[in-house]
Design a protein around this nucleic acid. Sequence first.
DNA 1: CACACTTACGATATTCGTAAGGATT
DNA 2: AATCCTTACGAATATCGTAAGTGTG
Lengths: 299, 299
Amino acid sequence: MSSINWSSSDLQAFAALVQTRHFTRAAERCHLSQSAFSQKIRRLESMVGVRLFERSTRQVSLTPEGEQLSREVLRIERELQQALGQLSDLAGLRAGRVAVAALPSIAAVWLPQLLARWRALHPQVTLTLHDSLAHVGLALLREGKVDLALTAGGDLREFETELLRTEPYWLVCPGGHRLAARRRVHWADLAGEEVIQLARSSSVRQQLDRLAAAQVLRSSPLEVEQLATLAALVRAGLGVSLVPELTLFHFRGPGLAAVPLAEPELTRPLWLARRKGQALSVAAQAFRGLLLEAVSASS
Amino acid sequence: MSSINWSSSDLQAFAALVQTRHFTRAAERCHLSQSAFSQKIRRLESMVGVRLFERSTRQVSLTPEGEQLSREVLRIERELQQALGQLSDLAGLRAGRVAVAALPSIAAVWLPQLLARWRALHPQVTLTLHDSLAHVGLALLREGKVDLALTAGGDLREFETELLRTEPYWLVCPGGHRLAARRRVHWADLAGEEVIQLARSSSVRQQLDRLAAAQVLRSSPLEVEQLATLAALVRAGLGVSLVPELTLFHFRGPGLAAVPLAEPELTRPLWLARRKGQALSVAAQAFRGLLLEAVSASS
DNA sequence: CACACTTACGATATTCGTAAGGATT
DNA sequence: AATCCTTACGAATATCGTAAGTGTG
């Protein structure tokens, strides 16, 4: 089981000599003195235990054993060099892929410009985005289908997390509502208001339900899944709603107003989650860096 | 184009760490101090430009890049080690093949015991024998189908040759012939004898034709190809013949006699021929060694 | 504090280049 | 004589092991 100890430079020297059949020129190609090159070949030969080249003064030729080796080695050396080169590409962000899951609100507000910047910086690294509800995104993360998940609230104990920021909630109401012109509202202001809720599966609803203060609110019998629907209902005067800041873009148009909720206990934490005990790829680290930078710049 | 300079020990260290996920144990497996091993991994990482292992105090795990490399490298390293090992086998005569062409007479007299010895010495090296007439054997050599050719006379200028020995010619005649009991015969003794010749393509005939002295002989109209036929004709009293020593085994039986021809100018040179400018394989060299040994022992 | 990886540093082994040697055309 | 590979030997480099350092459970 005496395994032979060769180095890549040995194999390159061998390959160079196979191609040139000339020690001096092969040595030049390897950036070595002709003498050092000669020694290298000699060492390689003594390692494998057989003469690989026939040196008849004016002619360098392969022995049968040398030919056999050349057939194998040239291919293998190329493969290995390629594998290592590919790795350098990954490390240098000249290749690779990152997959990210993000809540629709985050995907819509933060990611567009982030994706554009990513494209500009690392055009050869594929960035895949899954805009899914919290539980779907976390499932993707759990299965390793994505490197990172951008999510809000929920049970994240099985993951490693970083708090990106917390965002306040806003009251959304019809444009002519009595609170529409206020600069901010408190719980007390909401007494008697009919609040349209999102479906129980949404992260927003789950957080509101946990809040004792929310009990003072009068819940509307309406429950919707899509924020666009919610906006339409509010605009039609069927009630008001409480939504996190990042979703406000749904409530811009005419006939609607949004007022910040001045209650410190109702904020939504936005997390960057990754798998525990699993290092990020270089590309994923780069994405995270860009994300943190963007978040800190926007606050 | 900065190609990375790694060595087999680097790759083995990497493989060991992938398998054990434990520096100390992997170092032992590589017969290295734990410190040297750590440096080795660090060097490898800095060469490819990316962290390959995640060392979290009590846990060694692969980074995504490390995993990618492990998939490729373990396979490639094995292939290369195998190619080099195979070469060692060839060098150590634990594998390989030799092909030899030999004239039928040589094949019949010298080679049987030589083949037996070869089997005993190098059972794992396949030895192929082609017993063919001179021109066929040389064609095989020219095409590289055989490593060596054992032949006699002929035009060998295109090959590299070694003279193994020269063998005398013998007169073969019927048992009751007037020369049958002689200890040796000269050209003069053959005057008036009818000499049965071999076909013009045989190396024996070609040599006899070149010999001026042979002109004194009376040629029989009979021309045969097979020595066995010749023996039968001589036994039947249809003439005598001149044959090289190595073919005498055809003329042993009753009713036949053989007498050495005491003419120094009529001997047959036996050559070992190989291709010019083409080194012999280790196995072929070994065969040549064995052959020379056997030849010098038999003379 | 015991285990496991990293760092420091002197010792050893490899590999390199210059220069001389030898062989062939 | 010119070309080309090998050998000799001191210098530079790389690698190793011992021992001390660091960090975590």
